[in-house]
């Protein structure tokens, strides 16, 4: 990797200062994606601004109708958290299926969401559960957050501090992992809130997306049978050595049905 400077801020304000002092600074959260990228010399930041020692960025708190996960909380903590396991088991399951145990001990929710890898799990949770992304500057609704491949609504220097997940009536998450990376080849999060149903798909397209047709059908009847093949056309999906767009389109239907079945217990 290329050489870089190191900054270890301890408060959110310091983070801003540290970034200002860097030519081309880059936040380092858990590093489970960033460090391999740096090793391959695919990025050349002037400085890494480590978020590990920033106060108040870690932990999980449950409210009455939502659960808030601070940005530097690692996947293993989310997977093991008793409140999440009882209130949103699909979220605990999702976190417990990211990468492998070692990745889950380092990787963080904030890092994953900010990176918005097209095959990452967390974007499906954020979008599928309609979470709110809280940043150093504002609150961003999930529907406005993921703007494209590796792209988000975050401004330059804007830092995710926590993600707030509303507690659904029911939710299910089914992932079809890439056998090599354990990223999602396709994964579907389905969540039901009263009369609203959200369906989010990751891995299949350039960016996590919702499926309006499935949501309408599930709103009418929250049953696996409501999901029909062809509700997501293959045309705009990813087509690579791991899977064709047709297969991905097919998997979305299968996994969505299974996610609904899981949500229905």
């Amino acid at each position: 990797m290329y050489d870089f400077g190191i900054k270890n801020p301890t408060s959110v304000d310091d983070v801003k200062t540290a970034l200002g002092e860097s030519d081309d600074g880059q936040f380092l959260a858990g590093g489970q994606t960033l460090i391999p990228v740096l090793k391959q010399r695919l990025a050349m930041p002037s400085d890494l601004i480590s978020l590990a020692r920033v106060d108040g960025l870690s932990g999980i708190s449950a409210g009455g109708d939502s659960i808030s996960v601070k940005a530097m909380t690692c996947h293993a903590e989310v997977a093991a958290n008793a409140d999440i396991k009882s209130a949103i088991p699909a979220l605990a399951k999702l976190a417990g299926g990211i990468g492998d145990p070692h990745v889950r001990n380092r990787g963080t929710i904030g890092g994953s969401v900010a990176n918005n890898d097209p095959a990452a799990d967390y974007p499906a949770a954020v979008l599928g559960l309609g979470a709110t992304v809280v940043t150093s500057e504002r609150e961003i609704e999930a529907d406005n957050f993921f703007t494209g491949m590796f792209d988000t609504a975050l401004n330059e220097g804007e830092l995710i501090t926590e993600i707030s997940f509303p507690i659904p009536e029911a939710a299910g998450y089914i992932k079809f992992p890439n056998p090599a990376t354990r990223y999602a080849l396709v994964a579907v999060m389905v969540a039901k809130f009263g009369n609203t149903v959200r369906v989010a798909v990751t891995g299949a397209g350039p960016c996590v997306f919702r499926v309006a047709e499935m949501e309408q059908a599930l709103t009418a009847s929250f049953s696996p049978d409501s999901i029909k093949d062809g509700m997501v056309p293959a045309d705009d999906l990813n087509n690579d050595i791991h899977a064709s767009r047709e297969y991905r389109a097919h998997l979305i239907g299968v996994l969505a049905r299974r996610a609904v079945a899981e949500a229905n217990g």
Binding site: P179, A180, T181, I241, H242
Partner: peptide, 11 residues
């Protein structure tokens, strides 16, 4: 070579 790492070649 399209399968040039353990990200693309599954063991």
């Amino acid at each position: 070579l399209v399968t040039g790492s353990l990200m693309d070649y599954a063991l």
